[in-house]
C-alpha cells in the first residue's frame, strides 16, 4: 500500500487562493484606484477585507493539510512496522 501523500493538487489550488488573497489586498494600490494617504474607497475596504479572509482561510487550510497529513504519515509508518513485525513472526513460526 502506498503511503499517504502530504501534498496534492488541492493543496496547490489552496496556495493559489492564498496568492489571490494577497493580490486582492494589493490590487487597489497596484491598479491605482486607491491612492495612498487618502480616505479608503468602499472598493478598497472590500478588497482588503476579502483578501485578508482568503489569505487566512488558505493558510488555515494548508496548516490543517500539513498537520493532519503528518499525523496520517506517522500512523501509516506505525501500521507498516506492525505488519512487517507480524510477517516476520509468521515466517519464524513457519
Amino acid at each position: 500500500m502506498k503511503p499517504p501523500r502530504l501534498f496534492s493538487g488541492g493543496t496547490v489550488c489552496t496556495g493559489l487562493l492564498g496568492l489571490a488573497g494577497v493580490w486582492l489586498v494589493l490590487a487597489p494600490f497596484w491598479v491605482g484606484y486607491q491612492t495612498a494617504g487618502t480616505t479608503w474607497l468602499r472598493a478598497t475596504h472590500n478588497d482588503v477585507v476579502v483578501g485578508a479572509v482568503l489569505v487566512v482561510s488558505s493558510l488555515l487550510g494548508l496548516f490543517g493539510q500539513v498537520a493532519f497529513g503528518l499525523r496520517d504519515a506517522a500512523l501509516w509508518v506505525e501500521r507498516d512496522q506492525r505488519a512487517a513485525a507480524a510477517t516476520g513472526a509468521q515466517q519464524q513460526e513457519a
Binding site: P4, G10, T11, C13, T14, L17, L24, A43, N46, V50, V53, L54, S57, S58, L60, G61, L62, F63, G64, Q65, A67, F68, G69, R71, D72, L75, W76
Partner: peptide, 27 residues
C-alpha cells in the same frame, strides 16, 4: 487514512467559494 485533513481543506475551500461569489456581485 483519516479524513480530518480533507475536512479542514474543504472548509477553507468553502470560504473561498463564498468569497468568489461575493467578489462577483460586490461591485
Amino acid at each position: 487514512m483519516r479524513v480530518g485533513r480533507y475536512v479542514s481543506a474543504l472548509a477553507a475551500t468553502s470560504v473561498a467559494v463564498a468569497a468568489g461569489i461575493w467578489l462577483l456581485v460586490a461591485p
